[in-house]
Design a protein around this nucleic acid. Structure first.
Length: 428
RNA sequence: GGUGGGGUGGCUGAGGGGUCGAAGGCGCUGGUCUUGAAAACCAGAGUCCGUUCACGCGGACCGUGGGUUCGAAUCCCACCCCCACCGCCA
């Protein structure tokens, strides 16, 4: 949610934001509705002032005759007021609807473009593996090593279902444990957060109203969140935080659920795109200053990059173009890992900042050093998602004999150097 | 699932038709005292919207939305949320 005052004062900037993000919203109409809203508000307030004055006169004590005259006056006032209040109410509801569609203003550095194909590569790290043998897909590798069972996954869970087993399960635990050690050393507060959330939280993060299709919901009208960001941001909703506690840095773990409506034909096999997965998410609330947001945004993204570097997986980082930046975001980086069998980089992490767009919706404020209460800034960035990370991990580190080398940093969590060096057990 | 009780400022908590933007306490800001701090004492301070160059003025805000009334934090209705006890289950 942007401040209406900001929108009025920066009309062209906001129009430009909508254009760049390919969002269809009529800012001129919003301003017209807002003009009307202000005019009605002022008329209603004048009437109310009059009403208050007459009411004071009545309670001050007057003769019965005067009293009756005043009460008659009040009756007329009230009727007039009701008409205008009705009009104001209607205007307000139109106003609110448009306001929810107004996008946050993307940063200057966000490139033009309307799809992820227009994202701009800003960094490349690591060396893509060259294989002296015919490499296999993560599906084949993991099935062969009995690390995953996709067939039974679909049987039990349905389309996009999977089981992780043996070293597939252990590798997931290892990554979580390693990620915990890695990120907590950087000052985060660890949390395990709810995946089932009330709808208001999804309005807060900006996932609703426009992304309802991608959300599962319960028969009680609660929703399954697609990311721990949702519950973590809801944590301080309607609160005023002591400013000296900022920045607040959470490392949140949760299962994540996505219907993937609209991507039916994409990535239908394997672990790239699944309905149910796990993610550790970095979330920050900081002081309301652009420089602070930028600083922490870079820091968050760098954390994720360094984590991937420590695993030794080749990646590149892109800055997302206008059309690939969400409604709420100012700027977004994606880290994408090399997937040898696809000969493509695939997203593993996404770092965004929002200024006060989310915190306005959540009503998260803080009291600064001068005692002034204001909206905090919010940011988030993936720490690590499982099982998607396994795709790049096993494909990049596979060997000719079908085994997979375990990255050095994970070995102590796995108690071995490789998976499948002995003859793998045949899949049961 | 059943039955009660409740949602009031940064926090806690009184108030149950007009004198209530709302007592008291905590916390906060300034001052007195003190070498400094603490304590004590004194004083101050809510948020949002509109309007104004500004001092200011006006309005709204006691969970949300309706209603009753000349007038609602206070009475009525609906909804949302919280708590307690019982039942059921881990």
């Amino acid at each position: 949610m942007l401040d209406i005052k900001f929108i009025r004062e920066n009309k062209d900037l906001v129009k430009e934001a909508a254009r760049k993000k390919y969002i269809d919203v009529d800012i001129d109409e919003l301003i017209e509705v807002d003009d009307k809203r202000r005019e009605l508000l002022s008329r209603v307030e004048k009437k109310r002032a009059e009403q208050n004055a007459v009411s004071d006169a009545i309670s001050a004590g007057v003769t019965d005759r005067e009293r009756n005259t005043l009460i008659d006056k009040m009756r007329i006032l009230k009727e007039e007021l009701q008409v205008e209040e009705e009009e104001l109410k209607h205007t307000m509801s139109v106003w609110r609807e448009i306001m929810l569609q107004v996008p946050n203003v993307p940063d200057m550095s966000v490139p033009e473009g309307n799809s992820d194909g227009d994202n701009k590569e800003i960094k490349v790290w690591g060396e893509k593996p060259t294989f002296s043998f015919t490499p296999k897909s993560h599906i084949d590798i993991m099935t062969h090593l009995d690390m995953a069972d996709f067939k039974r996954g679909v049987k039990v869970s349905g389309f996009r279902g999977y089981f992780l087993k043996n070293d597939g399960a252990l590798l997931s635990y290892a990554i979580w444990n390693y990620a915990q050690d890695f990120f907590l050393a950087r000052g985060f507060t660890p949390m395990i957060v709810p995946a089932i959330v009330r709808r208001s939280n999804l309005y807060g993060t900006g996932h609703l109203p426009n992304e309802a299709e991608d959300l599962y919901k319960t028969q009680d009208e609660d929703f399954f969140a697609g990311t721990a960001e949702v519950a973590t941001m809801g944590y301080y909703a309607d609160e005023v935080i002591d400013g000296s506690k900022l920045p607040i840095k959470f490392l949140s773990f949760s299962p994540c659920y996505r219907r993937e409506a609209g991507s039916h034909g994409k990535d239908t096999k394997g672990l790239i795109r699944v309905h149910e997965f796990f993610k550790i998410e970095q979330v920050i609330l900081c002081e309301a200053a652009h420089d602070e947001s930028v600083k922490w945004h870079e820091w968050l993204n760098r954390n994720a990059e360094e984590f991937i570097e420590s695993l030794g997986i080749p990646y590149h980082t892109v800055i997302n173009c206008g059309g690939d930046v969400g409604l709420s975001q100012v700027k977004k980086y994606d880290i994408e890992l090399w997937v040898p069998m696809e000969k493509k980089y695939r997203e593993i992490s996404s770092a965004s900042y929002f200024h006060d767009f989310q915190t306005r919706r959540f009503n998260i404020k803080y009291r600064d050093q001068n005692g002034k209460v204001q909206y905090a800034h919010s940011l988030n960035c993936t720490a690590i998602p499982t099982p998607r990370i396994l795709v790049s991990l096993v494909e990049n580190f596979q060997r000719e004999d079908g085994s997979v080398v375990i990255p050095k940093v994970l070995r102590k969590y796995m108690n071995k150097d490789a998976i499948g060096t002995e003859t793998p057990k045949a899949a049961a």
